[in-house]
Simulated scan of single mutants.
Amino acid sequence: MANNDTIKKTLLVTITLSLVCSVLVSGAAVALKSRQNENKVLDVQQNILAISGLVADPKALSRQEIQEEFSKITPKLVDLETGKFDTKLDVDTFNQQAASKDPAMSNALPADQDKALIKRLEKTAKIYVVEKNGKLETVILPVRGYGLWSTLHGFLALESDLNTVAGFGFYQHAETPGLGGEVDNPRWKGLWIGKEVFDDKGNIDITVVKGAVDPSASDAKHKVDGLSGATLTSRGVDNLVKFWLGKNGFGPFLNNLKKGES
């Protein structure tokens, strides 16, 4: 009787099983990629809805309800160099993160201008606007910058005066849970609401302080408590907010919008 337990047959079975498993895994990855991309978009929409104040708890909504609520928000493109709306690109297909890595759609930032440590700045940004009866209620600005371990991606929402914070939060980061990861803490995010980002002369005056803000201080409306035990993450948040509100970020756009020249 022939011996079937040969090295050749063992290798053949092993290779065949490996190929079958590889095909199954690859097929599953391809099949799930579309749903994964949809879930990423849905997560960003949930964060925008929460930050805009339109929905108290977007996570409690169904996929369809999220999309219905998000339809009340208008995405627009902004040319960061001119500070004016850009209608040359397709707002529905524009990917800001991809643009930031494309040399044709972004510029390298000199070290002395790169307060947020993002290395490259896209020429165009995708913002979101909430209007009621044709009047601006909220403008939601994408922001990002380096913390301690990662680049934090989020949104800063301003009220119609383009000065008062309506909401703030991050949808992507890899900061330390319990420390820098407290940027996700609803209590801390709530501290930003009502704060003013500019002083009376239009200078950026919002600051994340070390420790707690003295509520009786004359400048308390421009200060936010730092994250306990997360000095570098707090500093990173402070830097990224200042960068995106400044001349290389949305500063020119906000000035134009105030003057009705966007």
Score class of each variant (00 low, 15 high):
14 T>R: 00
52 S>W: 06
12 L>E: 02
24 L>W: 05
33 K>V: 04
39 N>Q: 14
24 L>N: 00
26 S>T: 13
36 Q>S: 04
32 L>T: 09
11 L>E: 00
38 E>L: 12
9 K>Y: 06
9 K>M: 05
50 A>V: 07
48 I>F: 07
58 P>M: 06
18 S>R: 02
41 V>W: 08
33 K>N: 14
58 P>R: 06
11 L>M: 10
32 L>K: 08
31 A>D: 05
49 L>N: 03
21 C>L: 15
31 A>T: 09
30 V>M: 11
41 V>H: 07
53 G>L: 08
18 S>E: 01
40 K>E: 11
16 T>H: 01
44 V>N: 01
45 Q>K: 15
55 V>T: 10
45 Q>A: 08
9 K>N: 13
32 L>D: 00
36 Q>N: 05
16 T>Q: 03
26 S>K: 09
41 V>S: 10
21 C>I: 14
22 S>W: 07
15 I>H: 05
55 V>F: 08
54 L>P: 07
52 S>P: 07
37 N>Q: 14
34 S>I: 08
22 S>A: 15
57 D>G: 11
8 K>G: 01
51 I>Q: 01
49 L>I: 12
34 S>H: 11
56 A>D: 14
45 Q>L: 07
13 V>G: 01
29 A>H: 09
48 I>E: 00
18 S>N: 04
33 K>M: 13
11 L>R: 08
33 K>L: 13
29 A>G: 04
34 S>L: 09
32 L>R: 08
26 S>M: 12
41 V>I: 15
31 A>F: 14
54 L>Q: 09
54 L>T: 09
42 L>R: 09
54 L>E: 09
29 A>Y: 12
